[in-house]
Design a protein around this nucleic acid. Structure first.
Lengths: 204, 204
DNA sequence: TGCATCTTTGACCATTTGGTCAAGACTACG
DNA sequence: CGTAGTCTTGACCAAATGGTCAAAGATGCA
């Protein structure tokens, strides 16, 4: 069932090489659009060699998704119930935006998965993710009721943070087309804009 | 090159049937993930029959994208330079949200395309779309300088509107998972939330 | 009704794709 | 060294997939 965890030096290296290559290919073409040949070429390995390290195409994809789900939610986990409410939320926004800037492939891997109906992560979403979100929603609702932030729907606040930040990774092609940009500079403008936007709306 | 425009009654009907079926399949699986057999089955036609009406798989997809691009931008076109600034922008937000609610398949078709690097619409984005956006950015910048709305970056305002509204269509699977919702009711909450958010941030 | 045109499809094809396998190459270690 | 275990790959396979084609079936109109 599960692919064996890497033991030798070579296994460790090739596992990483394959996942790195697969991240490139899956994030750009989606699961169905990616081929083992592409991944093999990107990893500079032969196709049978890929299948020596991972039992199947879906196993590679699953390994990536697993790795992603554990780290992807760290910024939200860090939201501290005992910190200053507005600053806590704002720094969550900026952490999320940084991740979109630094890990756009991971963001697109996830986006591909969700847009197509979350066929492989549906259970994780209604499980771990829902659990974490519900907890933080409780925290935010508390702040809201205590008058520390404006009275808003915490679920939709979180959705709007996800939407606005991930948009810069997932819709990168559109944004670059419109801004005629060939670098990352617009992320700085986005940071200014989003900080203002959320600060404004959270003001009690 | 171009597929012939439908002439007879039968052609008109089958063209529509095929596009409807293709929209279902492409929006759920992406271009590469969709198969002609799936589309044929969904349309209740034989595969050679599909190819009697459209010369190839990409032609079907292109026809959908073309149809989409013409109507997708209507809400933005309606943004009136002579209307009340804040109400104009807010009703743009709500129109966009309605489209996400009523045409989620179209939204996902587009999302699939952009997430994968806009391979088929790249030129349309840096062409028609950029032109329209630049025009409306000018309008918004004018309002901003005239002190009618807060001083914000009009590009990122538009991006944030797209992000927050389309999110409800594109990431539907995630949202339903977290809200444990099986209906559309959360769109009403979203409308309230987004109206408040944008009204708050636009206040001069 | 007769005939030209439009529509439909079963059979078929070449290519791509995920995956297998057996045999050979390389490593590590006694 | 030698050999047991690890790693690599060329050749191959079955299924899926986009697309073709010739021939049969409908349709419409004089």
């Amino acid at each position: 069932m599960r692919e064996k965890t890497p033991r030798t030096r070579i296994q460790k290296k090739n596992h990483q090489t394959i996942l790195e290559a697969a991240l490139n290919v899956f994030s750009q073409h989606g699961f169905r659009g990616a081929t083992l040949d592409q991944i093999a070429q990107e990893a500079a390995l032969s196709k049978p060699n890929l299948l020596y390290y991972f039992p199947s195409k879906v196993a590679i994809h699953r390994a990536l998704i697993d790795r992603l789900m554990t780290t992807w939610l760290d910024p939200l986990r860090e939201l501290d119930a005992h910190g200053d409410p507005i600053e806590e939320i704002l720094s969550y926004v900026l952490r999320k935006l940084s991740m979109a800037r630094e890990f756009p492939r991971e963001s697109r891997l996830f986006a591909n998965e969700i847009v197509q109906g979350a066929p492989n992560v549906g259970d994780k979403i209604s499980g771990d993710l829902k659990f974490l979100v519900d907890e933080k929603v409780g925290v935010i609702a508390g702040w809201s009721q205590a008058g520390k932030i404006a009275s808003i729907d915490p679920y939709h606040l979180i959705f709007s943070i996800w939407a606005t930040t991930q948009h810069y990774a997932d819709f990168d092609a559109q944004i670059r087309g419109i801004l005629a940009a060939d670098d990352d500079a617009h992320f700085d403008d986005a940071a200014v804009f989003l900080e203002r936007m959320f600060r404004q709306m959270l003001k009690p």
